Amino acid sequence: MTELPFRLKTLEPLPGALDIIRYLGKLEEPVADIDTLCDELGLSDRGFSKAIRRLVTKGYVQMVGDQVYRLTDQGRTAADELAEYDANAPEEAETEDLRVERKLIVAIPEKPVAKQPSNVFIGFDAADANAELDDDAQMVLRVSAIHGQIDGDEMLDLGNDPAYNTFTLIPDAYTKLRLRVEAYQLNPNDDGIETCGGLYVDIDVSNTGESGDYKAYSTNVNLLRV
């Protein structure tokens, strides 16, 4: 059975993207304007805008006039691959879950001092070779503390290299605090937000002295491949 190439699978969650390639690929001259594409494929202006923007960015189509689009050579190849796949695919083909694992890391002093600010580093390890992203993922790190004060939500643009944000933690006058980190990802396909995972850690708090060396905690979270 013919399998859809992975680079085209990444377009499946974006409504209309593959259908635009299919439609243009069936034309003798693979060119059409926005009104024709929307009418023929039943796409809204908003849906078409999202799909065509991704296709242009990925090099499958190009604008050749005022709201007129043409398949590129890469787009023609993709149209041929889609035609072969459609001819051989079962009626109810299962789609692959286009998610990849990434390690979320929290580095915090072993024993922060009450009422004293400490830096906390929260981010992600480098991507494994089989889990690389094509584009940067827009992440939201939601951080909260019980018996402590810390910054709230922060955005992080995540590529394939390690990336982190620095947060300021001020423990309250308790012997322990709980730090919770939740990772979310903005979905580029539908403007929604995806829950990726998170962790919490319980930390001893000192009343005096130094905060000590840093200790790292980690967990795997699931990102939408973009």
Rank of each mutant, 00 (worst) to 15 (best):
L24S: 07
K26E: 13
E28P: 00
E29D: 07
V31Y: 01
A32Q: 05
D35P: 01
T36E: 13
L37T: 02
D39P: 00
L41F: 10
L41T: 05
L43M: 10
D45M: 06
D45F: 09
G47L: 03
G47Q: 12
R53C: 12
V61K: 05
Q62G: 09
Q62W: 00
V64Q: 07
G65A: 10
Y69M: 08
Y69D: 06
D73Y: 11
D73W: 09
D73P: 00
G75A: 10
T77V: 13
T77R: 11
A79Q: 02
D80F: 12
E84H: 01
E84I: 03
D86Y: 04
N88C: 12
A89F: 03
E91T: 13
E94W: 02
R99G: 09
R99Q: 08
V100M: 08
R102S: 09
R102P: 13
L104P: 09
I105C: 11
A107W: 00
A107D: 04
I108K: 03
I108Y: 02
E110V: 13
P112Y: 05
P112L: 08
V113K: 04
A114I: 01
K115D: 07
S118I: 03
V120R: 02
V120T: 03
F121A: 12
G123R: 09
F124C: 10
F124W: 06
D125M: 06
D128V: 08
D128W: 09
A129R: 07
D135G: 05
D136V: 13
V143I: 14
I146R: 14
I146T: 15
E154Q: 14
